[in-house]
């Protein structure tokens, strides 16, 4: 009986220690804890999902890590149902008439963040590479192996912007260098980054997240609650569509 008691005490102490260690480790790496987010990419040739440092104010989501894109090596390939497939350099795209707007982007994960974005409207690209009459949308192919579809109607919306600059500076790798599209009335997964190729298509196609998750291919921001990162994540009611605060 004594031996049994000792074993129990020993076992009890060991289990208590293990529990405490697990608790401390769990607390240290809990979701939302900055300590839980190692900085995998700073100083490397790669960029990917991160929420450390300045990105606590504007989370970065990528589908997969990608090698940083060099402007000199990059062109935008435009193909599919277009009159003539073409390639555009970054300088050519930067030469298009520029628009600037302030927009808040909202992730389907519930957070949002705001910035000033500059770039060109889709109509400018359509002039250079018109779609065939049967085209109804565009499929985006991104550097992180992400794909997404947007209709021509959504691309021609006056608030949809093809972005090359953010807050007055060239897009950072994290925010989608060299080219991203913002659609402020749709969740972030409908806002492709690090675009390398677009294809005009004649039917709706499911993007990466809509194929594997419970995410609608429409992606319009719905009435609900927002947790803006730049406003302390304080919950705010939103009406759906573009967030205007």
């Amino acid at each position: 009986m004594r031996s049994f008691d000792r074993l129990n005490r020993r076992s009890f102490l060991a289990r208590t220690f293990a529990f405490c260690a697990a608790f401390v480790q769990g607390w240290w790496s809990r979701p939302g804890s900055a300590r839980a987010e190692p900085d995998y990419f700073t100083g490397t040739d790669f960029v990917g999902k991160t929420r450390v440092g300045k990105f606590k104010q504007f989370y970065i989501n990528y589908w997969k890590p990608l090698r940083r894109i060099k402007a000199a090596d990059w062109t935008l390939e435009v193909g599919g149902l277009c009159e003539t497939p073409k390639h555009f350099t970054l300088d050519q795209l930067k030469g298009l008439p520029t628009m600037t707007q302030t927009s808040r982007l909202k992730c389907v994960e519930c957070w949002s963040a705001k910035a000033e974005w500059s770039g060109f409207h889709f109509s400018e690209l359509m002039k250079l590479c018109p779609p065939q009459p049967e085209a109804t949308g565009v499929v985006f192919h991104c550097g992180d192996i992400y794909t997404e579809h947007l209709s021509l109607a959504d691309l021609n919306h006056p608030r949809t912007l093809w972005v090359t600059q953010m807050n007055g500076a060239p897009l950072s790798d994290e925010h989608g260098f060299p080219l991203r599209v913002i659609v402020p009335f749709k969740y972030g997964y409908k806002n492709p980054k690090a675009i390398v190729k677009i294809e005009y298509v004649n039917e709706l196609q499911y993007g990466t997240w809509s194929k594997i998750g419970p995410y609608s291919p429409d992606g319009t921001i719905l009435p609900g609650t927002d947790h803006p990162l730049d406003l302390g994540k304080t919950p705010r009611r939103i009406s759906g569509g573009e967030i205007t605060y």
Partner: peptide, 9 residues
């Protein structure tokens, strides 16, 4: 719960 496996309309 309604539509437990879908986030859209």
């Amino acid at each position: 719960r309604p539509h437990p496996f879908y986030s859209g309309v």
